[in-house]
Design a protein around this nucleic acid. Sequence first.
DNA 1: ATCATTGATTGATCTACATCAAACATGGTT
DNA 2: AACCATGTTTGATGTAGATCAATCAATGAT
Lengths: 238, 238
Amino acid sequence: MREEDKAGIRELPLFREVSSETFQGLMAASYSQVFPPKLDLFGQGDRADFLHILIEGGVALHAQWNGRDAVMTLLRPVSSFILAACIRDMPYLMSARTLERSTIVMIPAVDLRAAIRRDGDLAAAVMFELAGSYRSMVRQSKNLKLRTARERLAAWLLAQAHRQGRVNSFLLPVEKRDLASYLGMTPESLSRALGGLKSDGIALDGARVIITDWNRLAAVAAYDPLIDKLIDKWGEDT
Amino acid sequence: MREEDKAGIRELPLFREVSSETFQGLMAASYSQVFPPKLDLFGQGDRADFLHILIEGGVALHAQWNGRDAVMTLLRPVSSFILAACIRDMPYLMSARTLERSTIVMIPAVDLRAAIRRDGDLAAAVMFELAGSYRSMVRQSKNLKLRTARERLAAWLLAQAHRQGRVNSFLLPVEKRDLASYLGMTPESLSRALGGLKSDGIALDGARVIITDWNRLAAVAAYDPLIDKLIDKWGEDT
DNA sequence: ATCATTGATTGATCTACATCAAACATGGTT
DNA sequence: AACCATGTTTGATGTAGATCAATCAATGAT
């Protein structure tokens, strides 16, 4: 594993406060791997053998039922994923696939659980992380239940612009079909919803979105700190 | 606080494995209170000052945005709620109100956090609990994204019958309006959806639901262990 | 450059569910 | 018992978003 990858992982809230002994131990047991685009990493129902950490690229967590499929989460580096399944030693509830060529570090779940038992600081970090993950899912459910597709899109566009440093113009970081599914709509509906927002503060150029009127767009989204987590590019809560 | 209430709390996964010292300490700092029906316990955005434990009665966690409101979770005794907000020391993302006359124990969040810092077993239990809560929310989101209203209703009816001991007939444990909102539909739609399921294995008598054909109903719900958590009345995973 | 593949858009139509409005139960009060 | 408040059901209608189908644009392979 590359040293710079380790450094990135070390920055995660999950490992920031942990002893270097624990951290190095885990890293020694782990391995790094590069995956091509659109590759299935694992499927829902599989045994949770590894905590995954996305170092480079992009990953979608999605779920299927009865022939239907929905993207649940879109991940960008550096992020850990499926921690909860590893902790409970239960099958994954979601499938994972790469969006593009991605570097992923895999920490064996058994080693992780052992480290947690030994190191109280790590246990505390995991606890804190899981509490945060739970709250993120609550936000997402609220988003889904309380907003219409159009409103969810407007909110996502604002959050995205924010994340990239409050820019007025940005490229969509994922294919529109994946974004559509993540937002709980079809690609066709996303296309139309984007078109519909042209009269509410955005302009379009292929995969580029230009925000022409923040206020109008924000009015559609009706930003709410109890649903939307605006993170600026330095990762600060705002 | 009544001794039997303490006993019930002691049975929770959260406190089952914890030293009696830690447990008694927390109980000493807590207090029990009885609330009338339909009373707001707290609102979303409030400071998370207490871990709540429902001892008797029923509670709905719900959320509001832009004038709309949706029930997020329906709780039955004995259950703790809003653990994550207490752990992160952040505002509640949901509001809570009693469904009926309810007994609730409130553990001050500061004391809880202090106890967690002192007692590794408690920390481990909290971690495990939060991982489970996260997974429950994932299941709920999958349910919401992948199933139609009718399918969600069928699945809920099956889960409910299961929970009450695989009975063929049961009373709805909450008002239909709350159930409707929980399932992500309007009361009118719930009423019609229930009517529509009459041809798929159920019969109705007011608030009583009679399952006349488990197979037909199960076919509509398309039960999936990665979405539906069937719990029998002894609380065992099945 | 040309072709093939995959994803995005547009248009026509359909449908699940919401909304609005009125009648209908239900349970508790006086 | 008669009353009122609150919740439920039914009916008529509206609409957000899905589906189906075709065209269009982008990307990569030969």
